[in-house]
Amino acid sequence: MNVLGLFVRNLMRGPVTDPYPFGPTKTAKRFRGRIEFDAASCEGCKLCERVCPSGAIKFSKDPGGLAFDCWHATCVFCGTCAFYCPTGSIRQTDDWSLAHVASEKFALVEHGLIPNQTCAECGATALDTAPMEGGVKPPLTPEEIATLRPLCPKCRAKFMKARKAKK
């Protein structure tokens, strides 16, 4: 390599660095960035909390239901939660721009709430989680999922037992 040739080559090509934050920069499509949680599709299995190696994910009881919190300042962006999530309710966005002032560090939290509902069958108060679909044979049909959704865990179990007996 001729160093002078390299100089000329680099002069012609211009800078290889991006002018970020004053200009745009590229982000890979698959970039594993900030966690995003979708409460509507969550089964409430809490697997993400168990597998999270940094302890960033916490489920807690809330007067309104079950609260999900992912602390971005603790998260190591390993993607283990998204990989093991059976419903794909957790995904990693390509947002990496998480610079913040120290006073905001406790506000950098992805919050979600799985609300309480009244069971359509027995009237008990239970969480409005997505019905568990993993390992169910034959797979649940969309109609069955719609029937299961407003039920409490006990009534869901009853439904599934009846379904198994029928098949």
Binding site: A28, K29, R30, F31, R32, V76, F77, C78, G79, T80, Q92
Partner: peptide, 11 residues
């Protein structure tokens, strides 16, 4: 970054 989503820790 393009294949694994991170520059160092590939996951």
């Amino acid at each position: 970054e393009a294949v694994f989503g991170n520059r160092m820790d590939l996951g």
